[in-house]
Design a protein around this nucleic acid. Structure first.
Lengths: 110, 110
DNA sequence: TGCTTATATACGCCTATCCGAATGGACGAG
DNA sequence: CTCGTCCATTCGGATAGGCGTATATAAGCA
């Protein structure tokens, strides 16, 4: 049973990572880190069609990474947990580390 | 041009997150965090067919999250950067936070 | 009610990913 | 060299994700 639960938590863990596995969603999260924004503001900032933004927001909502509050005619989205940005920054650092290592290798070949 | 570069880095950022977006790969990374392991050891620990392990390792290798060194007849894999585990732990904390919030909501309904 | 703006969803298409089963390739023992 | 072990890759089918277009829902206002 503990086995079963652990598998499920792991599945959720993967799902939440999956939500980060798209460039546009990453951009959305970084945008929201600067403060709450409406769908229109996001679509203008990212230069992406509105349905695309909404679909990505839906996925982020389902993973509880963001939430939206109606504000008159528009809906203002916010980060649900700023730690997501920490995780993204860490992954970016790992990425840079990998690129540096790759560059060293290339250097060695010359 | 700066625009172009930023898009590319973002794509890589997403790719590296994509590598985390699978339960088995998450388990592999946590296993490797305990120390280097061979493919056979991983397949036994995760109770997964060997080709599956190899395919996942390939993806992790391509993202430079792990690397393998031949050790006689087997290949010993290691984490390339322990910070990946930090990021995973952070995401797991975010996940737990979301679940707690979900539980509060459910509580409120009773 | 009727119109406009803002957001969400549905549909169809394409691409990517996952898996299991089978195959291929590298190493060491004898 | 041959065999057995360990690991990697390929193939085919099923599933999921992303996008653009078109459409639906919701709020505000006349």
């Amino acid at each position: 049973m503990e086995e079963r639960l652990e598998r499920e938590v792991n599945q959720l863990h993967a799902s939440i990572c999956q939500a980060l596995a798209d460039p546009k969603r990453i951009l959305i999260l970084y945008e929201l880190h600067e403060g709450p924004k409406t769908v229109t503001e996001l679509k203008d900032a990212l230069r992406v069609p509105q349905p695309t933004v909404s679909r990505h927001l839906k996925m982020l909502r389902e993973q509880r990474l963001v939430y939206g509050e109606r504000d008159g005619v528009s809906i203002r989205y916010s980060l649900a947990d700023a730690r997501v940005i920490d995780a993204l920054d860490t992954m970016r650092a790992v990425l840079i580390g990998g690129l540096a290592q790759q560059a060293e290798l290339a250097e060695g070949l010359s």
